[in-house]
Amino acid sequence: MQLIACPWCGQREETEFHYGGQAHIAYPEDPYALDDEQWAQYVFFRDNPKGPFAERWVHSAGCRRWFNALRDTVTHEFLAVYTGATPPSTTSTAPAAPQRKGQEASR
């Protein structure tokens, strides 16, 4: 059982948290400007990298607040937790920002 460092509460056991999928997938600015394929990319498709991955987590059994984390999907190690829009630049292993059809509008 891992410890996860909630940005507000500090290290807590992982059972206190819920996973929220890939981070930095913004709700499209204008969903109606997207065709079905582009909208489906937003709704259904997510990256599945081997290595560092920017994810959302929520401290559901604690402060109930959402935050982002950079986690290595091979070792499960949390490389960073953060609340900003991008992973901290101090991390040398920051992944390329996900760029997919249907998302440009949201940036």
Binding site: S60, R64, W66
Partner: peptide, 11 residues
Amino acid sequence: LEWMEEWLQTE
């Protein structure tokens, strides 16, 4: 409640 919080906090 979690669903509503998620949209409120993240979006």
